[in-house]
Amino acid sequence: MSELNIGILGIQGAYEKHALSITLAGANAEIIKYREQLDQIDGLILPGGESTTMSKMMGFRIDYEDILAFAEKKPIFGTCAGLILLGKGIDDPRVHQFELMDVSVARNAYGSQKYSFVDNLTLAFDKENPFHAVFIRAPQIENIGDDICVLATCNNTPVLIESNLYLGASFHPELTPDPRIHKYFIQKIMEVKNGKTPESA
């Protein structure tokens, strides 16, 4: 597994934590701040942080179009703010979505920080042990398209989803020292690298 290089967009937010999780899951992690770096990685993580800050910085050293071109061939995993960027349908000029997943997401849907929470989830790909998930000013997945596969829910709302080359979480797997979700993403990258077409749900 160690020959895989996973990039984490290093504009703002919890990118160092994701790098630790990727290392724990057995791949190489690289913080991505420049468009040239995208050529050297097999998959990309859009971390949690502020989607407005990341949107604002698009076009400085990495363009929106650079990420879209990357996304045509290689997997992307978005967590929290990263999931917001993967989705579509937000009517807010402060947030520039990539519209890679057919999902609409409401920002800060649970309210301010005092409503942030932790909960145990059941992962569709590993049902035996619960996953301790941390939700911070979390976005809420509202509507999902037919091609979206739901991998975990919390109070009947999808919180971990997959479609085509993309994986999205409304919580923060990088804040839990349990690398199963990062391993799942790495597995997905391996399949793409080995020429397997990702299955749509």
């Binding site: 937010g13 160092e16 934590k17 949690g48 942080g49 502020e50 941390v134 911070i136």
Partner: peptide
């Protein structure tokens, strides 16, 4: 959960 928000503010 409290430290989680502090983590999200890093690099900003």
């Amino acid at each position: 959960v409290k430290v989680g928000l502090a983590e999200m503010l890093k690099g900003g």
